[in-house]
Design a protein around this nucleic acid. Structure first.
Lengths: 318, 318
DNA sequence: CTGAAAGCGCTAACAT
DNA sequence: ATGTTAGCGCTTTCAG
């Protein structure tokens, strides 16, 4: 074939907008170039940014991202069947892991490449996480600098890994500062959880001057709780939330928060998954069965940073 | 083959968890059983519920839903190529339509089954919408009953169909009530848009006693604006937003809003799209090129309802 | 170094 | 009725 003809064919193909047929390609190469991603209910706005990072990166690397909302665990088996058993995806990002989630065992058994994003699975060696501990330190240092010493924590569900890690970090920070880290109440990640936790905190420890919440939504709930009790924010009670979102700037008062590298987390999860898929031998690098971070675990380098707004201020004298 | 053998094969298949390979099936039947859905940035929480309805229904009808975020229009061509030209999807739900969106022409030309959800395209005959006009009436009737007569509207971008329909409905309601519908300011659907619009409204018409915003996010922004101006909500200014979300109950004060049938919209969009795909002859029912609602357009039967909370109250005497 | 052919897993049309 | 076969569009291997 003359180079001239070759040129003409390529040009023609481009002009006609030719694109290889995905299904035929997938069938022949037994690789779909589709990545699955399982996320908790998207009402939790934290995940929309993670998802966006994942979409962007997948597209850059010529993969398509197939999102699935992990609403109720009873549907997990169905989701698994639909995505994995029919060969629709080459790998899966699980951002909704919980201890005992039926999917975790199924994945390991099936040998599909997969990573856990944000919610780590101990010992899996497949975790992609943010530096949550640093995020806690940033928040508590900010409160400390404002003079707060009676700081409480409205934590997330303790069986959810990032919630537990933040609670642990909260305790460690207090120990480092010679303070008693007893003011911890657990609730869900939503506004309702934050509101109820704040109410309980203020009932049990009325001299609390600041609350650190494990999510922005909980922060909103905590502000609401303070309002219902008639406590001024931040004059009487300071509130700071983990994870920032655009909304936070428009609350009354605007919520001080810790900005987390959510977009980067999505990007990194996709990269880690593709590495596994393209790894020569293994269908996903095997995890060492030790507890704690295994060899393959990854922590995003971008560190959480403080976004100071109106919901935190100097500690009051009570 | 004896029925007994048949039985054994079926049982064995089930026990082994056999599932037909999606790519092979797609190739042979030239139908992927995948639906695409294009949505505006998911930071807009309105779409998370629509998406959930769509996911649920697609799954029920044995389709997989492939979500794509329509972030910038320059990526539209790329998205189109990736989803449509490679034959990855059987049809597309477009929830991010704007006049002149490059995708609209491409879709018509290509002949792919598609519907427009929430953001209608005039004359397409493929629109699945909510009864936004009724939503406006519900909001304004509520304010009227509280004694408000100087009501302003913080509208969405006028080139976005639901924003325009709500603005039109706002004007019609005022005409029906013999009031001057002049207090309309346009902004984007986000908190910032609501805040800026509210500020401008109060600057131009200082005697305004109530604001109806075209989204919940704008409502949040409007509350924020009132707070910065030192206007009490609802004692001095009532605020009501279109579309409800769980967050609204935890704002300070809790935001009165109009609950829209978002989940149902997602469900109906999927049903409409699948009908088109399964329609015998046409690759999507042809649209009549008339202006206004065309034959194939659909309005969700569930009507918007009022959720009264703390951000609306009796009109003050100024 | 160019060109033909086999086959991925499935299903629809065919021959028994 | 049951069983066989061709071929969807692509890629990879093998023959020329």
């Amino acid at each position: 074939m003359r180079p001239e003809l070759r040129e003409r064919v390529i040009t023609a193909a481009r002009e006609l907008g030719y694109r290889p047929h995905a299904a035929a390609r997938a069938l022949r190469r037994s690789q779909t170039s589709v990545l699955g991603m399982l996320v908790p209910p998207l009402l939790n706005p934290v995940y929309t940014l993670i998802v966006r990072g994942a979409f962007r990166r997948a597209s850059q690397r010529d993969f398509t991202l197939l999102l699935a909302e992990d609403i109720e665990e009873q549907h997990a088996e169905e989701t698994f069947a639909q995505l994995v058993l029919t060969g629709r995806i080459d790998g899966l990002i699980v951002a909704s892991a919980r201890p005992g989630h039926p999917l975790i065992a199924r994945l390991a058994e099936h040998g599909l490449p997969h990573v856990f994003a944000n919610r780590a699975v101990a010992g899996s060696g497949r975790n992609v996480m943010m530096d949550d501990e640093h995020g806690v330190d940033v928040a508590l240092d900010h409160l400390y600098a404002l003079g707060h010493r009676a700081i409480a924590h409205a934590g997330g569900p303790s069986d959810l890994d990032p919630a537990r890690r933040r609670t642990d970090a909260f305790r460690r920070w207090h120990e480092r500062h010679g303070l008693e880290p007893s003011r911890v109440v657990e609730g869900d990640f939503l506004e309702s959880g934050g509101s109820e936790a704040a109410l309980e905190i203020l009932r049990r420890w009325p001299d609390t001057t600041a609350i650190y919440t494990s999510s922005a939504s909980q922060g909103i709930g905590a502000i609401h709780a303070a309002w219902t009790l008639g406590l001024a924010v931040p004059a009487r009670l300071s509130i700071i939330g983990a994870a920032d979102m655009p909304l936070a700037a428009y609350l009354v008062p605007p919520l001080t928060s810790v900005e987390m590298p959510l977009f980067e987390l999505g990007v990194a999860a996709v990269d880690a998954l593709i590495s596994q898929i393209e790894a020569p031998g293994a269908p996903g690098a095997p995890a060492s069965p030790t507890d704690g971070p295994a060899a393959g675990d990854l922590v995003i380098e971008t560190r959480p940073t403080l976004v100071a707004r109106g919901s935190t201020g100097p500690a009051p004298r009570l």
